[in-house]
Write a protein that binds this DNA or RNA. Structure first.
Lengths: 151, 151
DNA sequence: GCGAATCGTAATAACTGAAGTTACATGAAA
DNA sequence: TTTCATGTAACTTCAGTTATTACGATTCGC
């Protein structure tokens, strides 16, 4: 079952935009994510509509962050992407007439609902600012001062 | 992102087999699940290898339950299916060189690992016997005694 | 033993949804 | 006005899943 990596992708794009200092074009972002610029535009459309980024046309145009990174969480980004399904496993059918299947669905729904609640709660606790800070920390460790031994 | 419904399907099949009284052929199971008998054989192969069901060839052959339903949980069934991926959302790539992506992956992995642990824990608490009991209860409610008003 | 029923499984086809690509329209800046 | 950039529809490609076909192996009843 192939995974939807749009959440991962847009987070990646947002952190690059944050670090870039000026608007990034779809072409530049596409290069970062090794994909096609049109895919970038498609994927970012939801974030633009939600007001998390701004896109501008024409020369010196491109994508810029339009929100406070400390005020936006992974949950917000997930919502801006249209709340895609989180689970790769699910019921054969919803609202089945078969009582056997109703029993199976009820049991699975219980478990998945609990896991989904936890996952979304976790998403809500991670801000984009926290991600950016984690990136900067990794960056600092990755390029230590001259002479500092690598851990 | 289409969902993997094999877990749901095999549970459905197991409950039908449990209620059936004699071996069910792949054709009969396929009719229950509106699919193809070869798909049934493929899907049940893991459960057979794990010893949860037995298949017998020839006339009057077919599939039978070969375990104590009270001793087998959804977690065991999930394992017998090869522990397919539970999440439809995931990282763009594992072990990326890009530090931005490393930070994104770390955050997402944290959240998904927690949700996965909870989900598997839930799976471990649900036995096939509990599912069968739930089905029987639904069945009793569905065909109440004559004169009993429907709830 | 023979024939029918049934599973086992490999190979292939058909279907599906996502991603990539092309094409062209729109808007902004110099 | 030309150029750079996004917006978006249409189309193509690709990968993964499921359905189907085909045929072999095993078991039962006669």
């Amino acid at each position: 079952m192939k995974r939807d990596s749009r959440l991962s992708s847009v987070l990646h794009a947002l952190l690059h935009m944050d670090a870039f200092g000026r608007p990034m074009t779809s072409d530049e972002l596409a290069a970062c994510l090794s994909t096609h610029p049109v895919v970038i535009r498609r994927t970012m459309a939801g974030l633009r509509d939600a007001g998390f980024v701004r896109s501008e046309r024409g020369p010196s145009g491109g994508w810029t962050i339009a929100c406070d990174l400390a005020a936006v969480t992974l949950l917000d980004i997930h919502a801006a992407l249209g709340e895609p399904a989180l689970f790769a496993v699910g019921n054969r059918s919803e609202n089945p007439a078969c009582l056997v299947e109703q029993a199976v669905n009820a049991a699975l729904d219980d478990a998945f609902d609990a896991a989904e609640a936890l996952l979304l709660q976790r998403f809500a606790t991670v801000t984009l600012a926290a991600l950016a800070a984690d990136f900067r920390q990794r960056f600092a460790r990755h390029q230590p001062l001259k002479g500092t031994p690598h851990a």
